[in-house]
Design a protein around this nucleic acid. Structure first.
Lengths: 202, 202
DNA sequence: GTATGTATACTAGCCAGTGAATATACACAA
DNA sequence: TTGTGTATATTCACTGGCTAGTATACATAC
């Protein structure tokens, strides 16, 4: 058990999350994570088999909250598919303006561990993005879009592209550009009936 | 001077390029680069002030060849803007099928060094992507596209998105999806006159 | 004989992971 | 109530190896 109310394992993951996201996987030592969690390294190794294991736990802990946030932004208003998806990009742009923002933890980790394709963290990252893509696809299909899976892939490409480009240029306006492109692609794919409906809602 | 015909400095950059691209910046030691270049570490430090300096040289050496390749793919046939840009994506998909492919060196480096925004390598990476975007914009403008800069940004987002997504899923078909999306966006932005022209060319 | 280039050998610090011991909590027997 | 065993949780101290960078010396060329 932990000294404070939070279990030790979770405190370690929190510390790892902050440090890995900020400085990258190889930029953070296990000692640093242990110190930030207020625990000795040996305790950390009691809860996690290896650093790789800890990295996987870091990403796994980000999976659900991240998806929930996207869904929440999407559902904030029922103003039509194009606007709802565009709102995800707009909110992301707002996040990206915070000075501590450093892109998508899943993508940055996958870029750093690109030479270890079988790494558990890679699998978790891939699964996370697949879930998001699948959620988009299902959502599009429910609105009667014929090429739903194609469109979902395109939106995903715009999203992940904006993570990469904004991180490089430190210019969140690219996220708004991506949002507008997504808006346009979805609008064009919408059947006429749904288009009328979305206009009414707005 | 070097033992072989190639100057020492260039051999070091070649070795660094292969290793950094494959294993990431922090995954490669200066000793490893020196060994691969067939040179002692001290010699390496004669030619480069620091590892960061070497990283910058690695990316700088990739700037022009990379852009030239894109331009070459674009110019391989004069079959209209949408098809020409889509061909860049198709060729990229072909590259991505090689087992040694590991995404875009510029993006991966920027992801790894995200906590050092002033790092010279970040500046070189940002400048590289800006050059590509600017080349697209000028090309679009020459074809009479009104929203050329907006469209150039969208294509860039699709391109960098496909680097990220393909690296994560190891599925180059996303690059073809991105190419089709780019094709569609450009076609829609083309003035009627140019559209007819591009159809004729095909 | 000075500038360029290369090599040997070194330092000081960091890193992932471990060995051995200890502390706490709780179940169950006397 | 007290004693004892066992699983969980934690600590201190350590190792062997790697890492970026350097002090010094030697070679070669013009």
């Amino acid at each position: 058990m932990a000294r404070s109310g939070v279990p030790t394992r979770e405190r370690i993951i929190s510390a790892a999350s902050a440090l890995f996201y900020n400085d990258g996987i190889r930029g953070v030592s296990v000692d640093a994570v242990a110190a930030k969690a207020g625990v000795t390294k040996r305790t950390l190794y009691y809860h996690f088999r290896s650093k790789d294991d800890l990295v996987a736990a870091y990403l796994a802990a980000r999976d659900q909250p991240n998806l929930a946030l996207f869904r929440q932004w999407f559902a904030e208003a029922d103003d039509g598919l194009p606007a709802q998806v565009e709102r995800i990009f707009r909110n992301l742009a707002r996040s990206a303006r915070h000075p501590k923002w450093k892109g998508c933890g899943f993508l940055r980790t996958s870029a750093e561990l690109a030479n270890m394709p079988g790494h558990p963290a890679m699998k978790i990252g891939a699964a996370h993005k697949k879930k998001f893509e699948e959620w988009l696809r299902v959502t599009f299909e429910a609105e009667g879009i014929a090429q739903a899976s194609q469109l979902a892939r395109q939106i995903l490409l715009l999203l992940d592209g904006s993570f990469a480009v904004v991180l490089l240029h430190r210019d969140p306006s690219y996220m708004e550009t991506a949002g507008e492109a997504a808006h346009g692609l979805i609008e064009a794919a919408l059947p006429v009936r749904a288009k009328r409906r979305s206009r009414r809602r707005r």
